[in-house]
Amino acid sequence: MASVEERVKEVTARVLKVDTSKIGRGDQFGADLGAESVQSVELVAMFEEEFGIEMNEDEALSVDTVGSAIDYISKVCQEQGVQV
């Protein structure tokens, strides 16, 4: 099974229409990857779908880098008993 990092990058690439290989942990969704307002919401929705979790809207939308998304999703998966 792919790692959380790989899955987060896959989803990010698909939603923001960027090449997976060009996505780094330090990239900001907005400034570096070009995520606009609605795309941020789509990203959160797609992460929920990909991992089968429910995220707190405000917390999820305040995550600004790929690395912090990986950490946050890992934490939520653990809290909600989702194996990754």
Binding site: V38, V41, E42, A45, M55, E57
Partner: peptide, 14 residues
Amino acid sequence: ISKIKVHKLARWVM
């Protein structure tokens, strides 16, 4: 309903 749940409708609008 949170805005996460309406993302498809928001995308259609955009």
